[in-house]
């Protein structure tokens, strides 16, 4: 213990008194704004410099107590991120499905068809280059061979084989598929043949029939065709040369259905009591 000298005690008293005066003055009226600003302008840049140099170190040191929990947190957030991503993707899929279903319902309502909704679970030009799709409905759902399959856009194909819970559909795009068609308005009959990824082909019964590009086709009676009537098939894009009544008149048809992008379709369980004629066709695009 060093006993403070008289001078030291005096200095202490003087400094404390000065400090008390400073506190009083500053507390009353914030008298040292200039002094504070000066200190700020001296220490401010220095603080910036020191922060820039040691800031990362400080942040790193500060993070050490949380390293374990940070790792857990990162894992949890990653998990959450994955979940949300999947949910988002599923939601987009759900939205697309809902839209397809509503269009299918609209088409079924217009044509008075009783439609069983079904999802395409398998697809592709299978063995023998057949254009077939597998649906997730079967005999249990009262699906029988020969039933027409539609989507919200129009004709998809015809049920060929039925299992207990699945069935195989020959698509209208299959080269072996022939559908009886009728031109909307004029009522000219013809046979629509699939052509794979290329456009479909229409062969008219009457070689002298008047057809033009833009005419629209629905399913119609043709021989022993089991397709329900009135389902939109497609639009004529090009008319073959007039053979003068000698050969058959042909035309190219662009189908309404994108056969490579089938997802939600409907099996027509019961057809309409009366032919819906052209009422199911989408509205004619303005020219």
């Amino acid at each position: 213990m060093r006993r403070p000298t008289r001078r030291q005690r005096l200095a202490l008293a003087a400094l404390l008194a000065l400090a008390v005066v400073l506190v009083t003055v500053d507390y009353q009226g914030r008298a040292f704004g200039g002094l504070r600003a000066g200190t700020e302008s001296v220490f401010g840049p220095l603080q910036h410099g020191v922060s820039a140099v040691v800031g990362p170190v400080g942040r790193f040191l500060g993070g050490i107590p949380h390293l374990a929990s940070s790792g857990r947190r990162i894992d949890a957030l990653r998990q959450q991120n994955d979940d949300l991503r999947r949910q988002l993707a599923e939601q987009a899929l759900d939205t697309a499905r809902a839209e397809q279903l509503s269009r299918l319902t609209l088409l079924a309502g217009l044509g008075q068809y009783r439609v069983l909704p079904a999802a395409v679970i398998g697809f592709g030009p299978g063995p023998g280059f057949e254009w077939v799709a597998t649906l997730d409905v079967g005999a249990r759902d009262r699906v029988v061979p020969g039933q027409t399959v539609v989507s919200g856009d129009g004709l998809v194909g015809r049920v060929k084989q039925v299992g207990a819970t699945t069935c195989t559909v020959v698509l209208a795009a299959d080269p072996g598929s022939s559908v009886g068609g009728r031109i909307a308005g004029s009522g000219q009959l013809g046979l629509v043949t699939g052509n794979g990824t290329a456009a479909m082909r229409l062969t008219l019964l009457d070689p002298n029939a008047r057809v033009s590009a833009g005419d629209r086709l629905v399913t119609g009676p043709y021989g022993a065709s089991t397709y329900v009537a009135g389902v939109p098939i497609g639009e004529i894009t090009e008319v073959g040369a007039d053979t003068g009544g000698v050969g058959p008149r042909t035309a190219t048809v662009r189908p309404y259905v994108a056969f490579t992008r089938l997802d939600l379709v409907g099996v027509v369980l019961t057809g309409p009591r009366t032919d819906p004629r052209d009422s199911v066709l989408p509205p004619k695009p303005p020219r």
Partner: peptide
């Protein structure tokens, strides 16, 4: 206010 820490630290050093 200016002087609070000054009082404390001056006392502490003393």
């Amino acid at each position: 206010p200016l002087g609070v820490a000054a009082i404390c630290l001056a006392l502490g050093g003393f």
